[in-house]
């Protein structure tokens, strides 16, 4: 099939002159096979650009299996494109029809500045994790793994939340550029486990403070994040996080004493 692409191009940080504001550029993508993945379609367009001595469209990707969370494309205005529960790298061209025009843009959020073309800087996510996205345990000296029984139900809920791949689609699709789904997934994973209890309320406060500091917005219950999440992380995690945050604030004094 033959397609037309409208792709966001923006110069990298070393681009000369004033900071590039970026623009949409039109490309033809002829002879695309329905068996190709979306990224393979971009590979073909890029090969043509390269041979013409032009810079290929820069886009982030690595595993191409929907698990590393690197790919990050806004496809026709939807984070990761039209297939529910699917990353851009797992989207296949049979989803499109001959003659289609496809718009491809980067994630857009204040906290995710564009580095070049479709590549953004998501390091804010790592900084939120540094603030509290862990259980403070050093290597060695841990008890036998079966010393800590966890009910199957809780373990499953924890795993549901832990499935987050940190791609940032939730932020990109939220009109407030909120990172609440991402942060709450980590908070919930640990909140369901006994290992997570000692730092539970400290963790939620620290992660939320960093999230605010990094410039992510608040949640206004639109649900766009859940709708586009390739791992179908649930908004109920946000409810859990809000509840933990309230408890944390309300009991802050008491926790300091104890």
């Amino acid at each position: 099939m033959n397609l037309t692409l409208k792709v966001w191009r923006q110069k990298g940080p070393q681009g000369t002159g004033p900071k590039d504001k970026g623009r949409m550029v039109t490309y033809d993508a002829p002879g695309i096979s329905p068996d190709m993945s979306f990224l393979e379609m971009l590979d073909i367009v890029n090969a043509k650009l390269e041979l013409a001595g032009e810079e290929p469209i820069a886009f982030d990707h690595d595993c191409r299996e929907g698990i590393c969370g690197t790919c990050s494309l806004m496809i026709n205005g939807i984070a990761h494109g039209p297939d529910a529960g699917t990353t851009a790298c797992q989207l296949h061209m049979r989803r499109f029809s001959d003659g289609d025009t496809i718009y491809i843009e980067p994630w857009r959020a204040r906290a995710f500045p564009v580095l070049k073309d479709l590549i953004i800087d998501r390091s804010a996510f790592d900084r939120i994790m540094q603030a509290g996205g862990f259980i403070s345990v050093n290597t060695g000296g841990t008890p036998d793994a079966n010393c800590l029984p966890v009910s199957k139900e809780k373990a499953e809920l924890s795993m549901d939340a832990a499935a987050c791949i940190g791609c940032g689609a939730c932020v990109a699709s939220c009109k407030n550029a909120s990172a609440m789904l991402f942060v709450s997934a980590k908070v919930a994973q640990f909140a369901y486990l006994p290992q997570g209890q000692p730092e539970r309320y400290d963790r939620v406060q620290k992660m939320i403070a960093t999230m605010d500091h990094e410039g992510f917005g608040n949640c206004t219950n639109q649900g766009e994040c859940e709708a586009v999440c390739p791992k179908e992380i649930k908004m109920t995690n946000i409810a859990l996080m809000n509840r933990d945050f309230l408890v944390a604030v309300a009991t802050a004094g008491a926790r300091q004493v104890s």
């Binding site: 029984p149 199957k152 373990a155 997570g196």
Partner: peptide, 15 residues
């Protein structure tokens, strides 16, 4: 080590 870190391994009904 992994369990102490909160890795959500699969569990049976006894936990």
């Amino acid at each position: 080590q992994c369990v102490a870190q909160g890795v959500p391994f699969a569990r049976d009904y006894g936990g």
